[in-house]
């Protein structure tokens, strides 16, 4: 579904991504791990057309690098950005409805589905998004992306700053989303969750992929974890 080859990215003159190559298949959850500053969030931003990039990223066989962000979204890639970025002045309902793409005909996900998945969002449908708790805002952000019916969801640090039981709920939700055929590329700091729900993992360091394999293989590889993951 997504084939990234030799992806390079720059922040101004800083060369941040130095040749990232990765692959995400239909309906699978793939995690991108690494320490802070390894280039994981930059990879997400580069794929969403937010940075100056080179290399190749084929989504369903078509090149997406160089396209503006809205066209990348229109091709079927959804994005749950770091720090949530809900629209605080708009109501929960308005936030969700903005997730529907221009001209979108049908979706696997409706407003009712979202309210069924998260009764808290339904109960607070008409309050401004800014007054929700951190966990509720994260759910809102994921649901908003789902309203656009993406085939691939890029999820950046969804559990950051959340209480343990909320973290568990987010993990369940991601599995539930993938079970409906949506592929997920997940950037996650909490190794336990990433290893539990992912089919494959990539480890990043210094702007490159330094390890690729199954969660089980990573668990066995002390050397990789010590060099690239442990703080």
């Amino acid at each position: 579904m997504l084939e990234v080859m030799d992806l390079q990215a720059w922040y101004g003159k800083s060369h941040v991504l130095r040749g990232v190559t990765l692959r995400v298949g239909e309906g699978e959850i793939v995690s991108l791990l690494g320490r802070n500053g390894a280039g994981r969030s930059t990879t997400m931003k580069a794929l969403m057309g937010e940075l100056q990039v080179s290399g190749s990223a084929l989504f369903r066989g078509q090149q997406i690098l160089g396209l503006p962000s809205h066209e990348i979204a229109m091709r079927g890639i959804g994005c749950v950005p770091e720090h949530r970025e809900i629209f605080p002045g708009l109501t929960v309902r308005q936030n969700l409805l903005l997730g529907i793409k221009p001209g979108q005909k049908a979706s696997r996900w409706s407003l009712e589905d979202m309210f069924r998945l998260f009764p808290a969002l339904g109960e607070r449908a008409d309050v401004p998004g800014g007054v929700l708790s951190g966990g509720e805002q994260q759910m809102l952000c994921i649901c908003r992306a789902l309203m656009g019916d993406p085939a691939l969801l890029l999820v950046d640090e969804p559990t950051e700053g959340l209480a343990p039981q909320v973290v568990e709920r987010v993990a369940q939700l991601l599995v539930e989303i993938a079970s409906k055929g949506v592929a997920i590329l997940l950037v996650e700091q909490k190794l336990g969750i990433a290893l539990r729900i992912s089919r494959r993992v990539y480890v990043m360091g210094r702007g490159q992929i330094v390890h690729e394999g199954t969660p089980a293989a990573l668990l066995e590889s002390d050397a990789v974890r010590r060099e690239w993951l442990q703080v």
Binding site: S69, A73, L90, L97, Q104
Partner: peptide, 25 residues
């Protein structure tokens, strides 16, 4: 209106609006 709500959202988070498929430019 939907356009107005997209405008309101783009005032604070233009990139997030673009990532939802709306043509911000």
């Amino acid at each position: 209106t939907r356009t107005g709500i997209i405008i309101q959202a783009a005032i604070t988070h233009p990139q997030a609006v673009a990532n939802l498929g709306h043509n911000v430019p």
